[in-house]
Write a protein that binds this DNA or RNA. Structure first.
Lengths: 196, 196
DNA sequence: AGAAACGATACATAATTATATATAGAGACA
DNA sequence: TGTCTCTATATATAATTATGTATCGTTTCT
């Protein structure tokens, strides 16, 4: 029965995380304490109605009261709209990641000399850096960069570098001709019925 | 700042009264005490999130969390189904709506030229026109057509058109999926065809 | 390795909600 | 008038939220 409350709180949390806002930042904007938010989000305490409203308002959300009957229709609207503009926030850490990646490439060049694959990676990074990436996409980039880092000292670096280049290329392609037939979700458009 | 909370509580109260439910009756269905509800409704005390949810659930309402951006659209939906004056019923008006929609698409084609999205919308409209839509579904279609109308003159029509196409597609998918997944019993152990 | 940010948790304490029960005042109805 | 039902209050008490401050364990970046 506490069901619905949990769902709402979980939604709020997902959206907070998706927009790259920390509990602390949110706590300031909402006028609550970080520990308070933590406890609410982790279900250890139930928020008062206006505490919850304060949280959601600080996330550009609103609580609305609707007849059960047209909840599905409304979820449709929300879902459809959730994709495009979600990424106004969170400008910071990505740049740093790219910077790190470019440093890495530079180091690899010094170790192994220039290679076509490295040039390609360099190019692709410059491209990707300028694009608005979804969380999922950024996640992929991150993993690839980590792999690059990890195998930097490896004896068999060359094939791995090539594979990474291919992966980045694939990502760029998928972004470049942005899906006319299949409008893929830029970020999770779940309605949370399966996970938790 | 407590404005929103008051508004929600006031809405709940209005709806309770409009449906002729007494505080006492509501208190039993919601599992709260009458005095509790009285204090909440008169603003003398602020409900916890789940107390409020219990109240609203007992009134066949639901709290949903939506981006501020599309609150107006949602209020439209809610209002449309709340006012008995606007009722659609009757077989005819739907056809007219679709006809209007198709004229709209035609006009858009003349203004902006053909586009994949417009083609898709055209297709989807033809499909939806032939299907029996529930009131809710028709409501959604109506809302989408209205949006198409409103943004017809907009400079940035393209992304909106795409979004509308996606919405219609989603609706079609939900219809197409729902029908065949029914086991289709050879002998009818039907449940009455109300779609609700 | 060290610094920084993040989320979870641990208190102590103040403030408020929630429950139970009872009753008062207003309005409708016979 | 007497009786209903409904909402608003009045307690007293138990339970929970909310604040402040501080710390712990992780992860991430330098």
């Amino acid at each position: 029965m506490a069901y619905q409350r949990e769902s709402l709180v979980a939604q709020a949390r997902e959206i907070r995380e998706a927009s790259g806002v920390s509990q602390r930042a949110l706590s300031e904007r909402a006028g609550l304490t970080q520990s308070h938010i933590s406890q609410i989000e982790s279900g250890k305490m139930e928020p008062g109605l206006s505490s919850f409203i304060d949280m959601t308002r600080a996330l550009d959300l609103e609580l609305v009261l609707v007849p059960k009957k047209l909840v599905p229709a409304i979820l449709n609207l929300v879902k459809a709209q959730a994709t495009p503009s979600m990424h106004i926030h969170a400008g910071q850490p990505n740049d740093k990641r790219f910077a790190r990646a470019e440093r890495l490439v530079k180091q690899l060049r010094q170790i192994y000399g220039s290679s076509a694959d490295l040039d390609r990676i360099d190019d692709l990074l410059r491209f990707l850096r300028r694009v608005n990436l979804s969380d999922q996409e950024m996640q992929l980039v991150r993993e690839l960069i980590d792999r690059l880092d990890h195998h930097q000292a490896s004896a068999q670096a060359a094939p791995i570098v090539r594979e990474i280049a291919q992966n980045l290329q694939r990502l760029r392609n998928s972004i470049a001709h942005a899906a006319p037939s299949e409008p893929r979700p830029a970020y999770s458009l779940d309605d949370g019925d399966a996970d938790a």
